[in-house]
Structures are given as structure tokens and as C-alpha cells.
Computed example of a mutant assay.
Amino acid sequence: MAIKVLEIHHTGYRLDPGAEKLEDTASFYSDVLGLHRDRGRPTIPGIPGLWINVGEVGQIHLFGGNQPSPVAKGPGQDPTLPHIALAVADIVESREELERMGVRYWAIEGLTSPDSLQLFLNDPCGNMVELHQFDKCRCTARNRI
């Protein structure tokens, strides 16, 4: 049985490590594209960045800092690498299904909130995909309050 994906929530890109690029990048998304940063982004030690709101459902997550990041699990297992994030109906069931199907993945728990669980896997071309629990992130406008 396939995992039940409900929505695309964010794409993750890298920022130049320089702190001056952070504000330049925020200005680009605001002044050029008319998008605004999510001021509620949690502080993640060692991972400076921006979350840019895109409509009611969606964000662009921009990650800075040195690579590998402090939360990397190993080579290629760093949530600050470029990726796409999808919301799933049930993250625990999704984890069980990945294990049942023998799909390689890695997990990060408690990074953006104490109860967060993010699963990361790669498609056959090496593109990273993040799975997280629907309605538990700031990617949707209703959760940015």
C-alpha cells in the first residue's frame, strides 16, 4: 500500500553561508516576488535561515550555515540539503509502511517542535523527499497564527 500524501508543503534550498545574504535573500522574495517571511520560524542552532510563505499552503525553506549541518545524520543525510516536503495523513503509519516496503529512510525527531517527526528518503535519481505529519507544521497559513 502506498503512503497517503495529502499536500506539498515546502521546498528546501541552500543559502550562501554568509550572514549578509540572509537579508538580501529575504528582500528578494519580498520586494521582487511579493512574498513574505514567516517570522515564526523556530531558531534552529547552527542552521540560520528563512521560511518564505507562499499562499495558503506552501513555503520555501532556505537553509544557511556550514555543511554538514549540526543535525546531519551522515553523508547525504542532512535536512538542509535541497528537498521537497510532503504532508502525509499519518507519519507513524508512513514510517511503518516504509519499513514494510524495505525503503531506506532516515528520521529526525524534535527539530522544529518537541513532537515533530520528519522522515527523509531519496527517489531513484537521488532527489531528497521529506515526509511530515499533516497539520503539524507552519507550511499552511492556518498554522502560522
Rank of each mutant, 00 (worst) to 15 (best):
D16W: 11
K21Y: 12
V92W: 11
H36M: 14
P68Q: 08
F63D: 00
E93G: 12
I47E: 01
S69Y: 02
E97T: 12
I108Q: 06
F63Y: 05
E23I: 15
L98N: 03
G58F: 08
P45D: 01
A72T: 06
L98E: 02
A89D: 12
H83I: 00
D90G: 11
G76H: 07
E109R: 10
Y29W: 10
G49L: 03
W106Y: 04
K73N: 08
H61M: 08
D24T: 15
L35A: 07
R104D: 08
G55A: 13
D31W: 14
L86N: 03
P68K: 03
N66D: 15
R104V: 11
P48R: 07
I108Y: 00
H61N: 08
P79D: 01
F28T: 11
I84C: 10
G76C: 09
A85I: 05
P42Q: 06
V88T: 06
D16L: 12
R95P: 05
P75I: 11
L35M: 11
L98D: 02
E56C: 15
A85T: 05
V54N: 07
E96Q: 12
A72I: 04
R41A: 02
V88R: 05
I91Y: 00
D78G: 07
A89G: 11
E23Q: 15
E96P: 12
I44L: 08
G74Q: 01
F63R: 03
D78F: 00
N53T: 13
A26G: 13
S94K: 00
Q77S: 04
S94T: 05
V71C: 00
V103G: 09
G58Q: 08
R100G: 14
L62Q: 00
D78P: 07
W106S: 01
G102R: 12
I91A: 04
P79T: 01
D16S: 10
A87L: 10
V92Y: 11
A85M: 03
P17E: 08
V54W: 04
P70A: 07
I60G: 01
I108R: 01
P42E: 05
V92L: 12
Q67S: 11
L33T: 09
G110Y: 07
G65P: 04
L111F: 09
I91T: 05
A107S: 05
D90P: 11
K73S: 08
V103P: 10
E97V: 10
V32G: 05
P82F: 05
R100W: 13
S30T: 14
N53L: 11
G76L: 09
L81H: 03
G65Y: 06
L98F: 06
I108A: 06
V92M: 10
E56Q: 14
D24L: 15
L22M: 13
E97K: 07
G18T: 14
R104I: 10
G102L: 14
A89V: 12
R100I: 13
V92G: 10
I60K: 01
S27G: 14
H36D: 10
P68M: 06
P75S: 11
L62G: 02
L111D: 04
H83C: 00
G64A: 07
P17L: 09
